[in-house]
Amino acid sequence: MINFLNKIRRPKKISQTKNLLYTASILIMGVILGVISKVLDTIPSNYLPYSLEMLDLGNFFSRMGVWIFLAVVISMYSKSPIRSAINTFLFFAGMVGSYYLYTVLVAGFFPKSYMMIWIFMTIISPFLAIVCWYAKGKGIVAITISSIIFMLITRQAFGFGVWYFYIKYNLELLLWFATIFVLYQSPKQIIQVVTIGMILRFLTNEINLFWGML
């Protein structure tokens, strides 16, 4: 099994010090983004500078797209599947922990049901991260993983129907382009990923993923 996975993508060696610094920076980034997203939740948009109000960052950070994208980037650019699992878990632990600590201690309420969803997402994030790590590899397995990632981001960015098509959020449209850039390895590979991903998008159009959060 290990030999098979190594044919898809081989882990890179890096010094322990660099690993620790990278992991610590990801944890800190998670904590900071958790606080920022909660602050944006609690401040009325018309109190923000006009540029931030127009970007609608509060709604952007309350949706799954940006967190899926960041998790994919963290997992794919980690040096090994194990480091990918650790880094992604700590990112979500920092983000979810700081978000709900701020919610309880500063905002003064306790949204238990919604919090449990994010705790569950944090718990399973290491396993999903290991899978995502192999998206940067070679062969049909990597293309399949990349296509599923692309499908998830496409669900966030666009709404489809028999007679309609629309962009859900402009910032998630930027994430859609950024995802293509992150997944890109060659023209042939990215055409396959986009084609399969769009097919999966249409096939899953009526399915609610992540408890309707997508």
Rank of each mutant, 00 (worst) to 15 (best):
G159M: 11
F158D: 00
K188Y: 14
M95Q: 09
L173K: 10
G212E: 08
Y166C: 03
Y77C: 07
L200V: 10
F127R: 11
E206W: 00
F91H: 02
P49W: 09
A107N: 13
R10I: 11
Y100M: 08
G212R: 09
F91L: 07
L200Y: 08
I68D: 02
M76E: 01
P11E: 03
S147Q: 05
Y100A: 12
I117P: 03
N3E: 14
V35Q: 04
M54V: 07
Y99M: 10
I28Q: 11
L105M: 04
V35T: 08
T17M: 03
F127S: 14
S51D: 11
V182F: 09
N170P: 02
V193D: 05
L183P: 04
S84V: 04
F69D: 00
L128R: 06
Y169H: 13
K136G: 09
W133A: 12
A142C: 11
F181L: 11
I36D: 06
Y102V: 01
K18F: 13
S62E: 08
Q189A: 14
F181D: 07
I74G: 05
I117M: 13
I199Q: 11
P81G: 06
A157I: 08
S80K: 00
V162G: 04
Y77A: 02
S147L: 04
I167V: 15
N170S: 12
F4A: 05
V182Y: 06
P81R: 12
G161Q: 00
I43M: 14
T204M: 13
I207C: 06
S15A: 12
A135Q: 09
L174A: 15
W133E: 13
S62R: 10
I86M: 01
K7A: 12
L200E: 02
